[in-house]
């Protein structure tokens, strides 16, 4: 297994800052925004985005929530039983502009589950998707609106996102699986 470093702290900060600006541009400001991170690392990224928004638009307190999608997945029978994570959405999402945040966009199935999970909480006016890394290989008609880095990858490669708050370091690596 050989790991190649794709992004480190400055790169991650830079792309999150760009995404924050893109979100503000498409939303014409910070009004009505709600950031919903998909556990675990999507929540951390959503919190970072919220902090960046505050530096761009002073006084903007954008609500951040966690949206667990485990109970909505369509692959619960293909893997060992998955642990769930807390869903914590502090505000009503009814009529809001929700930005879903995740670390890696791959098959699109997590996002599909997230859309269902969100429907059970309310009806946002608009839903957008922001991801740190888009690695391709979509299995569903889903695309991200805001992408940190496009990272074409092979199926047998692994993308690892490690974030300082959870893992003690900021790094995105790609592992070349040694054919076993």
């Amino acid at each position: 297994m050989t790991a190649r470093v794709i992004m480190q702290t400055p790169d991650i900060h830079r792309v999150l800052t760009r995404i924050a600006h893109e979100i503000l541009e498409s939303n014409r400001g910070a009004d009505n925004l709600v950031l919903l991170g998909i556990p675990t690392r999507g929540v951390t990224l959503a919190r970072r985005l919220a902090a960046i928004f505050q530096t761009i638009v002073p006084g903007a307190a954008i609500p951040v929530g966690a949206l667990d999608v485990t109970m909505y997945r369509d692959d619960l029978w293909q893997h060992p039983t998955r642990m769930s994570s807390p869903t914590d959405v502090p505000v009503s999402i009814e009529g809001s502009t929700v930005i879903l945040v995740d670390d890696v966009l791959y098959s699109g199935r997590t996002v599909r589950a997230a859309l269902d999970a969100m429907t059970d909480l309310g009806r946002p006016q608009i839903v957008r998707l922001a991801v740190l890394v888009d690695r391709g290989h979509r299995e569903l008609p889903i695309r991200a609106d805001f992408v940190g880095k496009n990272l074409p990858s092979a199926h047998d490669e692994r993308i690892n996102v490690r974030l300082a708050e959870l893992d003690g370091e900021d790094v995105v690596t790609i592992d070349q699986a040694v054919s076993a």
Binding site: M71, S84, S85, P86, D120, L121
Partner: peptide, 16 residues
Amino acid sequence: EDMAAVADRENKKLPT
């Protein structure tokens, strides 16, 4: 714990 949180929602059903 996560199941208990669903009981506090307006929609108490999961499709799992």
